[in-house]
Design a protein around this nucleic acid. Structure first.
Length: 871
DNA sequence: TGCGTCACG
DNA sequence: ACGTACGTGACGCAA
């Protein structure tokens, strides 16, 4: 042994506790209420001390048993406050942590932690072993010697002062041997050691500089003068007793020999699950070291014969595509890893029954990254892909919903896996993106992804299991992935005639508007440019400008609406804006994404939103206009196939129902269960109305109901309702008075989020909210609002996902021709043959309302028609 | 590429 | 004094 680290566990634990338990602080707790603040801070300090795995370390603790010090001096450590229960309960956890690190945590009756350290330090030092002691207790300075360094942790936890004989002398002007005598003279209030009354550090140091030791001081007591001499003589016994008390043992009978202090291997899996159990996720991340690079190679599979020998159950398979839009993308390669061997499978083999059957099989499990992408692409090739047992993208998304936006490399790096390259580095980016010349470069890259999937599976599954989220992966997201793949592939038919008709009409109207606007403005300019428009309105026409933004005048709809009567150009611009939006985004936009089959095939991003909702891209079919009649016309472009009808079914007030359930709002529950109009009901309660509710009052109540879901603010409510912020605040107060459970829920959820750093839905989908820890006020406020909103929005997302899975199952099991086409957050759109309309009108809303049991019943409406406009 | 704008739930 | 409700995607402009 070359080096030994001795840690004063008690001292560090106290520091750790009080560093995070300052007055007014909320102590860190797990969701079950176990305190973890000291454990957390202890681990942080500990990992700074014990950096690599090579040192021999012992952590010494006190016991509650009295030592010879208590026995020889009644007042020893008297007056010390008892350890807070919040700290005491964490001690076993700290022991466990140290043990899992592969390090001995040791205490023994009759010995203080100091003594254990003193004994081992002395023994090691005598054998020429260098010793590092860590504590915040200055008493330990007496152990400093040529071989023993004492490191004292300073208040901020950040700094450490190291004491060697030299630095000790520099600071105290005394040798390390004199530290005991110093303490004996000056005493120590924290341990209730008396010392010599009237003698403080100054006097003690002066005396010791002259006489070296306590004993020698008394031998020369007559050389000393005045009050000091008197004090010394009167308290000689106290001085020598103090010396006994402050002297740390250097010999004793301990249970381990030095050799037995050898460090063992850290048990990483157990340590990770220990830290996860106590919800110390940031520590899990810090703790993990990058995995050791393993050298690996792969074989290229080019024949069916070779293929037959490698395909196994539950291997990882990765399809790499030429484009993000995977519908008709080229397959750049197929990576495959069975846990031992790595392969690159030639895509030509997709023509073989061996590969077709393997992919399609419901018996053979496959592990993937973005199962849906592969399935959709294969469906276009008239192949199928089934039985996904694990999907890395979905699993990572469930662990942290912020990960889903990121690329493969980033995601795996979050789980400390770095044996994958950045896509950009392999394929280039932008216009230059393409397969590199060198085959082995991209082949290896694609195979490396399959390896990552396989090698990370266990870890992610364990993490999900620990947080009770495995259900979400295996019973919700993966099955949903399969449903979404079918919906995307199915697509929705558009009428090119209708599209063209609307295009012509819009073009003409926009042209006319443009001419009129230019005439009124008196000069030619680009109306679609907010910058140019702002200049025309607020400089040329001198209209009053209210708001400004970073780049100039604001010209948004709100501003324009307020100027409506100030100039005849304004209504024209409002209309231009509306029509231009419809034209560019919806008419021209949709025209450009029609496939050869005459349909539009969107892509649902399943791992993107932080709340658990889906998003729809290429094109976005979740924001097709409906609020204005003009815009709603666009929906006539989407038509049912021949002899089929659209069936739309949407949840009624699902988010408010979830709020009524989660916050346990009795009045809301009752209103919902009696199928009353929820906004009128709210208006009645808030305005204390008996009879009819005026539409204005209902509107106000509706605004607050919505506001609550978003994390209401008086200012925005006042904007929304055109009242003063003060009136809005009154309104909110009244509302919360009527529904006190909501007030409580809002407070509780923010407290939970602040304490735990995340919020969750009814089925444990989690959203971390780091903004709550921000030092920026606005950021923290944002964090609070999302804490309120995410569980509600997320639960609604969970419920409709369950409904989709249930519905798909029903359709499959009963061999129905009806197909799910679209999901728009709280509504489902199906294409139904005439023969199934009646059944579906009954079954779809039923499955939707039965998807999840809340304290209030879920209701879903139902409509059918030939175009989307009609439902 | 970032911004402003506006479409949806 | 700050800036103002949650979650999205697509467009055109301007740099």
């Amino acid at each position: 042994m070359k080096k030994l680290i001795l840690i004063d566990g008690n001292s560090i634990l106290f520091r750790a506790y009080y560093a995070t338990a300052y007055p007014g602080a909320t102590l860190m707790q797990t969701s079950k209420g176990e305190y973890t603040n000291a454990l957390f801070a202890f681990v942080n300090m500990f990992t700074k001390i014990v950096t690599n795995g090579e040192e021999n370390v012992l952590v010494a603790f006190d016991t509650s048993e009295p030592t010879f010090r208590h026995l020889s001096y009644d007042e020893y450590k008297a007056g010390r406050k008892e350890m807070p229960a919040e700290l005491a309960e964490q001690i076993p956890r700290v022991y466990e942590y140290v043990r899992l690190m592969g390090i001995k945590a040791y205490c023994k009756g009759g010995y203080e932690a100091d003594d254990i350290i003193g004994i081992y330090a002395t023994e090691a030092s005598s054998k020429g072993i260098k010793v590092d002691i860590y504590s915040s207790d200055r008493d330990l300075l007496q152990l400093v010697s040529d071989n023993v360094t004492v490191n004292l942790l300073k208040k901020g936890m950040q700094e450490v002062s190291s004491y060697t004989p030299k630095t000790l002398f520099d600071e105290f002007e005394l040798t390390h041997n004199q530290i005991i005598d110093l303490k004996s003279l000056m005493g120590d209030s924290s341990d209730n050691i008396p010392g010599v009354p009237g003698v403080g550090p100054k006097t003690a140091t002066t005396l010791l500089k002259q006489y070296e030791t306590l004993e020698n001081i008394y031998e020369h007591i007559d050389d000393i003068k005045g009050k000091v001499k008197e004090n010394l003589i009167n308290n000689k016994e106290l001085a020598f007793m103090s010396k006994k008390l402050v002297t740390i043992m250097t010999t004793g009978n301990l249970d381990y020999t030095l050799d037995e202090i050898k460090r063992e291997e850290t048990n990483y899996p157990e340590l990770v699950s220990f830290l996860q159990k106590y919800e110390l996720h940031s520590l899990v991340k810090q703790l993990e070291q990058p995995t050791v690079k393993v050298e690996w190679d792969y074989n290229v599979i080019e024949t069916e014969e070779q293929l037959k020998t490698i395909l196994k159950d539950n291997a990882a398979i990765h399809f790499e595509f030429s484009e993000e839009n995977y519908h008709l993308a080229d397959i750049w390669g197929i990576g495959y890893f069975d846990g031992e061997k790595s392969f690159f499978i030639d895509k030509e083999l997709l023509k073989t029954n061996t590969l077709k059957d393997y992919l399609k099989s419901n018996k053979i499990r496959k592990q993937t990254y973005d199962f849906k992408a592969a399935k959709v692409n294969l469906l276009w090739k008239d192949l199928d892909f089934n039985n996904c047992s694990f999907d890395l993208l979905l699993a990572a998304y469930l662990i942290d919903s912020h990960y889903g936006k990121e690329e493969f490399k980033y995601i795996v790096s979050k789980f400390n896996y770095d044996d994958v390259e950045y896509d950009d580095l392999v394929y280039g980016k932008g216009a230059k993106k393409g397969l590199p010349e060198e085959k082995s470069v991209y082949q290896k890259h694609i195979v490396s992804k399959a390896r990552a999937i396989y090698l990370l599976r266990e870890k992610l599954i364990t993490e999900l299991k620990n947080e009770n989220q495995l259900y979400l992966l295996e019973e919700l997201e993966i099955p949903l992935s399969n449903v979404l793949a079918k919906m995307e592939f199915q697509g929705i038919l558009v009428s090119k005639e209708e599209l063209h008709k609307q295009k012509i009409t819009l073009e003409e109207r926009i042209n006319n508007l443009t001419n009129e606007i230019i005439t009124l403005a008196g000069k030619d300019f680009n109306i679609a440019s907010p910058k140019q428009l702002g200049e025309v309105l607020f400089e040329d026409l001198n209209l009053p400008h209210a708001k400004k933004n970073k780049t100039g005048y604001s010209t948004n709809a709100d501003v324009l609406l307020k100027l409506k009567n100030d100039h005849p150009i304004i209504p024209l611009i409002i209309e231009f804006r509306e029509l231009n939006k419809l034209y560019t985004t919806y008419i021209v936009g949709l025209e450009g994404v029609i496939f050869e089959d005459g349909k539009i095939h969107t892509i649902y991003k399943q791992a993107l939103t932080t709340t658990g909702r889906l998003s729809s891209v290429d094109p976005n079919l979740q924001n097709i206009p409906t609020r204005t009649e003009e815009g709603r016309q666009i929906r006539k472009v989407f038509v049912a196939s021949e002899n089929k009808y659209f069936l739309g079914s949407d949840y009624s007030q699902i988010e408010l129902r979830i709020l009524a359930d989660m916050a346990d709002v009795k009045a809301l529950q009752e209103a919902f269960n009696n199928k009353r109009d929820i906004h009128s009901e709210t208006a009645k309660a808030v305005f204390d109305i008996d009879g009819d509710v005026k539409s204005e009052q209902r509107r106000a109540a509706k605004a607050v109901n919505f506001g609550i879901i978003y994390g209401i603010g008086a200012w925005s409510l006042s904007e929304d309702l055109n009242i003063t912020p003060k009136e809005a605040q009154n309104f909110i107060d009244k509302y919360l008075g009527v529904y006190p459970e909501i007030k409580k829920y809002m407070e509780d959820i923010v407290e939970f989020a602040t304490k735990n750093g995340y919020v969750e839905t009814l089925v444990k989908r989690r959203r971390y909210i780091p903004e709550l820890k921000s030092t920026v006020f606005m950021q923290r406020e944002f964090g609070k609002r999302t804490s309120l909103n995410a569980p509600i929005q997320g639960t609604a997302a969970d419920i409709i996902k369950i409904a989709m899975i249930d519905l798909d199952k029903y359709l499959e099991q009963n061999n129905k021709e009806s197909k799910l086409l679209l999901q728009v957050h709280d509504e489902l759109i199906l294409e139904v043959p005439e023969s199934e309309i009646k059944e579906m009108e009954e079954i779809v809303p039923k499955i939707m309302s039965n998807a999840y049991d809340l304290k209030v019943k879920l209701e879903a409406s139902c409509d059918t028609g030939k175009t989307w406009y009609d439902i």
